[in-house]
Amino acid sequence: DVKEEIFRYVTEGDFKSKTYDELAKFVDKFGARPSGSQVLEDSIDYMIQITKDEDINDIVTEELEVPHWIREQEKITMLEPRSKHIAVLGLGKSVSTPPEGITAEVIVFSNFDQLAETPRQDIDGKIVLFDPIFTTYAETVVYRSQGAVKAAEKGATASLVRSIAPFSINTPHTGSQYYSDSVPKIPTAAITLEDADLIRRFYDRGEKVVLNIKMTSSYETKISRNTIIDYKGIENPEKLVIVSGHIDSWDVGQGAMDDGGGLFISWAAPVILKRLNLRPKRTIRSIFWTAEELGLIGAYDYEERHRNESNNINFIMESDEGTFSPLGLVVAGNEEARCIIAEILKLFESINASTLVESDSPGSDIAVIVKTGIPGASLHNANEKYFWFHHTEGDTMNVESPEELDLCAAFWTAVSYIIADISSDIPR
């Protein structure tokens, strides 16, 4: 009754609320942990220490170069048709405006097709606002990640995006974006749903909208570290079942949800097993990815560095879309692999966590590894409100629940233990 033993210990026993309490201590102590910052490195050292405090000492770090983009001053003022402050968050690695800012008329597009159909002379010198209505993150995030390049190709002086979120209390949501070497780099930022919709209404009425955008930032590279913790298997220690989350966060909010929750349930898995003296046949490896937010930098480094031993990865898991009530797993793998995972998930029907969702590319960091053919899964959870808080000042401990984190930690630990202990490898 291994599964029951784990759940009793985590939800009723000595580990009850431990995941939440440790996450809260961590988040309160360090706050936001942007890529390349000293606070991120200090937080990595802290995670290593609290793991050693649990008498788990098989820990290595791997250094890599990461972006260090520092947000400085950001201000947008609407000058026409009336004066208004526009709440703003620059997008990751955005270039600065000139000191006096960029003052220009706004042209609004709800999709890239409209942009492509519009003559360059109608866009040249203007500020482009993309205002897609949020459907799913996957469908709309391209307007954040590629908007600056698409707008610059048409001669825009800056680009803005309606925050990629389904709900807002005038909250801008930051995020990554990617420049192309072949087009000019223009300043780019997110504005709130409310302000984007206001500008859209003016625009549709034929009223000229003029903004002044002032943004400054700096950019350099620094050294950071992926953290790898092994809880060695007793029969096949070379074979790995990986649980993971990313330790870096955006510079706004505190990264309690994104991805503090995923980080701490992946820390908890070997800790819980060690405390219960449960040691599976294969090794359970916890990885704390660095620099996920600016482009999965840590994951790419790990995949490249460990490529020649990737045949040892039996299964890889990640939680980076919330640690609310667990519902099951989002699984990539062949049919036999999915059948084995589905059979394991049947053990969790009593907590309503037995759903298997099929996906070719679950997770964020682990997608880098899954796309090489390694089976993997991300946590399927009741995250309907995840994008309310994502990449905002609202990503704080108040989003997290001790009871839900206990369920996630127990589920994550039990699933990884069973996969690591059954007689059959997960087939590829």
Binding site: D1, V2, K3, E4, V330, E335, E336, R338, C339, I340, A342, E343, I344, K346, L347, T355, L356, V357, E358, S359, A414, I418, D421, I422, S423, S424
Partner: peptide
């Protein structure tokens, strides 16, 4: 993403021994 409606072939792909082994963790 789509919720797996059915994994019909699981009974043929997985041995009874493996199914019973997994069930034993409950």
């Amino acid at each position: 993403k789509s919720v797996a409606k059915s994994l019909n072939k699981c009974q043929t792909l997985l041995s009874d021994d493996l199914i019973n082994e997994i069930a034993s963790y409950k």
